[in-house]
């Protein structure tokens, strides 16, 4: 059986990639995708601990999490569509109205 550490390291790598993308990418859609990667890193953790501690609760939470992520993406994409309509851009460095 594959040891638990492998799953956790994978999850950590995914989370780091996602966080890096969120902080550095300019396109809002790419940022949204990176957020999804981070969420999936969390889902892998849920499933891993669920399997290795012998209960089904973690896997159930992972399912919920995927459902919520789908809804979140829908909301996020809707916002981005409206942004494109109003501002003609979804480049994040151009969206800085809320400042001093």
């Amino acid at each position: 059986m594959i040891p638990q550490e492998y799953f956790l390291v994978l999850s950590g790598i995914l989370f780091a990639i996602g966080a890096f993308g969120v902080l550095t990418r300019k396109n809002a859609i790419v940022v949204l995708m990176c957020v999804e990667i981070m969420l999936n890193a969390a889902n892998i953790n849920f499933v891993t601990f669920s399997v290795f501690s012998g209960g089904a609760a973690g896997q159930v939470f992972a399912l919920f999490s995927i459902a919520i992520a789908a809804a979140e993406v829908a909301v996020g994409l809707a916002i981005l569509l409206n942004l494109q309509k109003l501002q003609d851009t979804i480049e994040l460095q151009d969206l800085n109205l809320l400042r001093w």
Partner: peptide, 16 residues
């Protein structure tokens, strides 16, 4: 108040 840049990614960087 200069700390409030309005850039989402700056805030996110601070949080991380």
């Amino acid at each position: 108040r200069k700390a409030q840049t309005g850039m989402t990614q700056t805030y996110a960087a601070v949080v991380v």
